[in-house]
């Protein structure tokens, strides 16, 4: 067996970051909410940077429940998309250009989403991580946890079910 030279670290990082950036940039509502993603290997953390337009109760003040729900749903959809596309991104069959063009790529569709508002969202940055608890051919079940200051003090959590894109329309699946 011939030993293969490992890829240079910057090549690996660039490929993953470019693919993630292409997925995120494709969805206008993610920009509207001011959400970005931080990546460590395949682990993603969604970040909703604070803006005054995210406020739902100006008297407290507190983040809008709808903004929190959308943030959690975005984190779930991107995690699911990222996880299913990972192998194709790594072997180079799914390029950022293909993601942007949308021809080889489709997003999962939300069947239902439930948000549990544990405490009011403070006027500062929020973070979320999603866990795929079931990933089948037809649908997936995803849980999301969101926090602000302390990781183990959640201010919201959500669970959603998502219809997976048709295997014919998305090479990534």
């Amino acid at each position: 067996m011939v030993a293969r030279t490992p890829e240079p670290v910057q090549v690996v990082k660039q490929r993953r970051d470019d693919a993630l950036a292409a997925i995120v940039a494709a969805i206008p509502y993610i920009q509207f909410l001011n959400v970005s993603f931080e990546r460590r290997g395949d682990e993603l953390t969604a970040v909703m940077a604070y803006r005054d337009t995210l406020i739902g109760n100006p008297a407290l003040p507190a983040l809008h429940g709808g903004a929190i729900a959308a943030f959690l749903e975005v984190a779930a959809v991107i995690e699911l998309t990222w996880a299913t596309a990972w192998a194709a991104i790594e072997d180079g069959t799914l390029t950022p250009e293909a993601i942007t063009s949308g021809h080889q790529f489709a997003l999962p569709k939300t069947i239902d989403f439930t948000v549990d508002y544990l405490r009011s969202g403070l006027p500062r940055d929020a973070y979320a991580r999603a866990t795929i608890n079931r990933s089948g051919r037809r649908y997936a079940s995803v849980h999301v946890e969101a926090w602000q200051d302390k990781r183990d003090r959640l201010f919201a959590q959500g669970t959603g079910h998502f219809l997976m894109p048709d295997a014919n329309s998305a090479k990534a699946v």
Binding site: I27, Y29, G66, A67, A69, A70, E73, F113
Partner: peptide, 16 residues
């Protein structure tokens, strides 16, 4: 928009 392929509104906006 939540799905650029179809122009459908994001579920989060409907949720809000």
């Amino acid at each position: 928009i939540g799905d650029p392929a179809t122009g459908v509104i994001h579920g989060g906006a409907v949720f809000a």
